[in-house]
Design a protein around this nucleic acid. Structure first.
Length: 493
DNA sequence: TACATACAC
DNA sequence: TATGGTGTATGTA
């Protein structure tokens, strides 16, 4: 193919339009990323995968060409009916909040090492970064970018290794606060959660001021005794680097004062916004870290809203059908949780980039996508989402995997496999679990991934039981390739 | 059930 | 030198 050059440009390119980039411009960044990637086995594999997606799209377009006016009309009517039905059950009565800590890992590391405060930094390794701070983002340094490429974009970048034990501890502190607003909150990860504020707000209406009053803690930074104006101090209080958030910190405008003990305090109101502001305030007082939040009538919308005034901000979408529909019209499909890179590309091929397009094309989509998929898209286009927060269900799988430098010797592969089985068995023991399906995952040096699974008639949990199965699966693969050895870079199970 | 793919963080 | 790890859902055979 000769027209791939253009496409390739977009393949590895900087994926984001989030933060402003003052250091380097986009083209320059993309050029550096491309030069670092081109020719690598990783890149070759990415190209291959892109081709697969393109083929999927071609197939879809062919299918589209087959659709008759008749079919489309019929599908349209069907969609219409379903939309009416969904509309009938629209529930705007819940107040759902999505909270997201700002650049969490990076913020924690900066808090604990003020040296880093004004430097571009990221958390991770030369192989992979988890997150980066604001300064680094200016250079195009992003989460999920390998550190060695980030270093090329920003030679002064400081890379701090991850310290999950610490993040877990901080996360625990934040979750204690979440629980006070919704004991049934659902955490998505260490730094993110959904809360249903409905009940809290009802209670809150009859709360005296005392319950809505929260103190600035003098323990934060060098704030011994607070001066009368806590307002301008607030920024200095924040250890987080995102001091550029424009509309997002109207925060300390409410009535606040100085307590008898000398600590300043603030009284929060009874509205949703005030309650969420209060929660974020308490998080910051407790952890010296900032959070952003989205407030909306369902989970899907709340999630999008939390991104709106990030970092250190919040956004409320009013609970009216009109506001919701309005909000959704201009929403790029990619912003919706669950619509990733591939779905976006497929939708784009159909001329769909915003949710308003979704609404217009639902007839077509119902013919080209699976039932579950188009139902979901229809809901999105109507601004619908879950209005209750499901409790975290029981885990369905447990796994461990490791990447290493090329491993080609059979004995080494087997002993590594055993090691992984030991790890999994240990983890299973900790939770007192058993499992019936053993899955072996292999990635070769060309980044091709394979999984091999076997389901047993009974549940297993011990190393020996698991390894017995995994060893067989691995041996089968080794035999399969022989006389060529398996050249593995990752193994998991 | 087996496997691959997509997605999220 | 160098592109992660863990878990869920879904489509398809």
């Amino acid at each position: 193919m000769d027209h791939t050059a253009k496409k390739n440009k977009r393949l590895m390119a900087l994926n984001d339009n989030k933060a402003g980039m003052e250091g380097l411009d986009r083209d320059k960044i993309n050029k550096i990323i491309m030069e670092s990637s081109k020719g690598s086995r990783f890149y070759e594999n990415e190209l291959k995968r892109e081709q697969q997606v393109n083929q999927r799209i071609e197939k879809m377009m062919l299918q589209k060409a087959q659709i008759t006016e008749q079919q489309l009309k019929k599908a349209q009517a069907e969609v219409e009916r379903m939309a009416t039905e969904l509309e009938r059950s629209r529930d705007l009565s819940r107040v759902i909040v999505h909270v997201d800590m700002d650049a969490f890992y990076a913020a924690v590391e900066i808090r604990d090492c003020p040296e880093l405060k004004d430097k571009p930094m990221a958390v991770g390794s030369m192989s992979m970064l988890s997150t980066s701070n604001y300064h680094a983002r200016k250079y195009g340094v992003r989460a999920a970018m390998p550190g060695f490429i980030a270093k090329k974009l920003c030679p002064n970048l400081v890379i701090v290794p991850t310290n999950f034990a610490k993040y877990r501890a901080v996360s625990g502190e934040v979750r204690e606060i979440f629980a006070e607003y919704d004991p049934h909150f659902q955490s998505v990860s260490l730094d993110e959660a959904y809360l249903d504020f409905t009940d809290h707000l009802e209670q809150r209406q009859s709360w005296p001021e005392s319950l809505r009053t929260h103190r600035f803690h003098a323990s934060n930074f060098g704030l011994k005794s607070l001066p009368q104006e806590a307002v301008p101090e607030e920024k200095d209080l924040s250890p987080v680097l995102f001091d550029d958030s424009p509309s997002s910190s109207p925060c300390l405008s409410g009535p606040e004062g100085v307590g008898a003990a000398g600590g300043a305090f603030e009284v929060f109101g009874t509205s949703v916004e005030e309650a969420v502001r209060e929660m974020r305030f308490r998080i910051e007082q407790k952890t010296m870290l900032t959070a952003s939040a989205g407030i909306a009538p369902n989970m899907m919308l709340a999630k999008v809203c939390s991104d709106k005034n990030k970092p250190n901000g919040q956004y409320r979408l009013p609970s009216t059908r009109e506001a919701v529909m309005d909000f959704v019209q201009n929403l790029p499909v990619r912003k919706v949780s669950g619509i990733g890179k591939v779905s976006e590309k497929m939708l784009n091929a159909l001329g769909i980039s915003s949710c308003s397009h979704l609404g217009q094309q639902m007839g077509l989509l119902s013919l080209l996508f699976s039932e579950t998929a188009w139902h979901h898209l229809l809901q999105v286009s109507l601004g619908l989402g879950s209005t209750f927060i499901p409790r975290h269900e029981e885990r369905k799988s447990m796994s461990t995997e490791r990447t290493f430098k090329e491993l080609s010797k059979v004995e080494e592969q087997l002993s590594l496999c055993r090691e992984l089985c030991e790890d999994v068995a240990e983890d299973m023991k900790e939770e007192g679990l058993k499992g019936k399906t053993v899955t072996l995952k292999l990635k070769n040096v060309s980044f091709e991934v394979k999984t091999r699974a076997l389901t047993l008639p009974y549940a297993v949990a011990t190393v020996d039981e698991i390894f017995a199965v995994a060893k067989d699966l691995l041996k089968t693969e080794i035999d399969n390739e022989s006389p060529q050895p398996l050249r593995l870079r990752l193994m998991g199970n």
